[in-house]
């Protein structure tokens, strides 16, 4: 990541330099003002989590209630369930998409036919560019009563009646995991593929001389070669575990699977926008942000201890 805070040669602020950099300074001032309004000002809204915020009273005159909203959150069984769902789906998705991308990258790299390789790769990116709206629509077609999955299951006599995949809580997490794998495997593999290309080819030649087979080469050269990339991407994604839970869950969820489909973000949306309890919604949002930051710091420390690359 960005190496900020690295002290360069102390720059002296002189009038001459300021004058010379006038254009840069004006633009950066304008951009900072913009950033302050759109990226930092919302942080001020965190105050509402400690208030009984009423829009008519505004931020300044709403009643201060301390940690009441947080206490309510942690005694609310729906919220606890929502946290469980978010963590479970976040972790499952992280693990399966990660493993699949690495496996796909390694196997694609083993394809020696250049045309075939290029074609497969081009096709593999496609789903990344489709919105979740489209992906969930497609999922509905594939998994519907007349869709291909049910058709095959019935034909192979695995089930007698088509399964209504969207009506059972058992299927929800696997469907979400599969959708994530389908959408992102090819895209996530790009970075690994370019990391594999950067591995010194002489290593492979030397291994062949020593009689190493494909598996041995994958295990002892390719995997260690992309290890730093894997680690850095893992680090970047750990902090996002709780962020990976909105669009698909919102779009695929329905009353029947509510208990496993709703995530923290959906909870925030429901309480904040639909029920107009801004304070509770903000409190849940703050909880999510804090956990994310803690996760990033922990992951970073672990990486540091293991002697791996770090984010900051």
């Amino acid at each position: 990541m960005a190496r900020i805070g690295v002290k360069e040669k102390e720059k002296k602020i002189t009038w001459k330099e300021v004058k010379r950099q006038k254009v840069l300074l004006i633009w950066s001032a304008a951009i900072v003002v913009y950033g302050f309004i759109f990226y930092y000002l919302p942080l001020g809204g965190w105050i509402t989590a400690f208030q009984n915020y009423k829009p008519k009273d505004g931020l300044l005159h709403s009643k201060f209630v301390g940690l009441d909203k947080f206490k309510f959150l942690f005694s609310d069984s729906t919220f606890l369930k929502v946290v469980r769902n978010t963590v479970a789906m976040g972790v499952i998705n992280l693990v399966v998409t990660f493993v699949m991308a690495i496996v796909f990258a390694i196997l694609l790299n083993e394809v020696k036919n250049t045309f075939g390789k290029k074609t497969v790769q081009t096709i593999s990116y496609l789903p990344h560019f489709l919105s979740w709206i489209i992906v969930t629509g497609i999922l509905h077609d594939v998994l519907s009563g007349t869709g291909i999955i049910n058709e095959m299951l019935v034909k192979l006599s695995i089930v007698d009646q088509p399964i209504n995949f969207f009506a059972h809580t058992t299927y929800f997490w696997p469907i979400v995991a599969f959708a994530n794998v389908w959408k992102e495997t090819g895209w996530n593999a790009i970075i690994y593929l370019s990391a594999i290309t950067a591995i010194d080819p002489s290593l492979y030649e030397a291994a062949s001389m020593d009689g190493a087979g494909r598996w041995a080469k994958i295990k002892h050269i390719t995997l260690p070669g992309i290890r730093p990339t894997i680690m850095i991407l893992l680090l970047m994604n750990v902090g996002n575990v709780l962020n990976a839970g909105f669009e698909i869950q919102y779009l695929l969820g329905n009353g029947l699977v509510k208990s496993v489909s709703e995530t923290i973000d959906i909870y925030v949306l429901k309480w904040g926008i639909s029920q107009n309890d801004f304070s509770l919604g903000t409190a849940a949002g703050i909880f999510k942000s804090l956990v994310s930051i803690i996760l990033i710091v922990i992951a970073n420390q672990l990486a540091k201890r293991a002697g791996e690359e770090r984010l900051f």
Binding site: M1, A2, I4, G5, V32, G35, I37, F38, Y39, Y40, L41, P42, L43, G44, G45, W46, T48, G239, D265, V268, L269, G272, I273, F278, G281, T282, G285, I286, K288, S289, S292, I293, I296
Partner: peptide
């Protein structure tokens, strides 16, 4: 740089952003 890198990790969240 720091001013912008921070925005990668911290944001106000749905409701405060909506209010702004």
């Amino acid at each position: 740089s720091l001013f912008w890198v921070i925005t990668m990790y911290v944001n106000g969240g749905l409701i405060p952003t909506f209010m702004v």
